[in-house]
């Protein structure tokens, strides 16, 4: 039973990682940029939701507004910071992303202060059920299911809709897509909007599990989600989902079974898995191997 509870915990964290990883993977797929600021967009989403909730707005509208806000925010960041660098080296773009990350963290610190703020406990008043000696809130299960539903919707959007096809075309070959009449700028903006919106959604799920909002809260989940994206095959949407869940479950189980003095090692396990996967299959679990043609 303890195992089952930890598994549910893992799936919950995993769904959060997966949602953030989707943003990483989509942006990487389309402009080959590791968007280091992505975790911080999640932080912005958390603050937005917190402000709305504190002003008496119910959770569902608060969540939707926060997602929309982050989507717009993502578009603005892309237009101001990343677009001018589309033609320059990948590394300059990466450093810019790091700059944006620092900017968001420090701006949040100025506006909201560095002290952690408490996120309202959403599980209060919700039913929970017993698994052995542990109780699991129904909201945990709902959030996992909701995350999966969103991911399936995204996958359908990308593979079935016209806009999704445009996205895939741009990620295959930007110039060719442009010649075929696809508006590349709009498509890239849309990618950022979707990724950032998902990050805001992840932020709310994250705050359900760890009800604390700080300016640096995005950093660690950001890195983990990024690892999840690489694990699944960066640029591949189902890969990000699988990677996220695998990472979440592994993390929850190692945390649960590792002696308490060595809790830091659970992160080491995560990194070790990343290293092994990269060595055995450098393109990730679902990624296609790429080889430079001679």
């Amino acid at each position: 039973m303890y195992f089952l509870v930890q598994l549910i915990n893992g799936l919950q964290i995993g769904s959060i990682y997966a949602l953030i990883a989707l943003g990483y993977t989509m942006v990487y797929g389309i402009i080959k940029l590791i968007n280091f600021a992505h975790g911080d967009i999640m932080m912005v989403g958390a603050y937005l939701a917190l402000l709305l909730l504190n002003n008496g707005i119910p959770i569902i509208p608060a969540m939707l507004i926060s997602m929309a806000g982050c989507a717009i925010f993502g578009i603005i960041i892309e237009r101001l910071a990343y677009k001018p660098l589309r033609k320059s080296s990948r590394l300059s773009a990466l450093i810019t992303a790091i700059g944006v990350s620092l900017l968001l963290q420090n701006a949040a610190m100025l506006v909201f202060g560095s002290a952690a703020r408490t996120f309202p406990d959403l599980t209060k008043g919700m039913p929970s059920f017993q698994l052995g000696s542990n109780s699991v809130n129904i909201l945990t299960v709902i959030s996992i299911v909701l995350a999966i539903v969103v991911m399936i919707a995204l996958q359908l959007f990308v593979t079935r809709s016209k806009a999704g096809t445009a996205m895939r075309a741009v990620s295959e070959d930007t110039d060719a897509a442009e010649l075929m009449g696809i508006n590349v700028n709009t498509t890239i903006s849309m990618t950022f909007a979707i990724g950032s919106g998902l990050a805001a959604f992840a932020a709310i799920l994250f705050c359900m599990a760890y009800p604390q909002v700080t300016p640096y809260m995005g950093a660690m989940p950001g890195i983990k989600a990024f690892i999840a994206a690489v694990l699944g095959g960066i640029g591949v949407i189902p890969g990000a989902m699988i990677g996220g869940f695998i990472l979440g479950v592994i993390e929850a189980l190692t945390k649960a079974y590792i002696p308490s003095g060595y809790s830091a090692l659970s992160d080491a396990v995560v990194f070790a898995i990343l290293i092994i996967v990269l060595l055995v299959k450098p393109s990730g679990l679902l990624g296609r191997p790429q080889r430079e043609k001679v």
Partner: peptide, 21 residues
């Protein structure tokens, strides 16, 4: 004091945009 990391971040972004090398 509290603005310094902000200024640092902005300078970094601006430098990369105008002088990516």
């Amino acid at each position: 004091s509290e603005f310094r990391m902000l200024v640092y971040a902005i300078m970094l972004i601006v430098l990369m945009i105008f002088r990516p090398e």
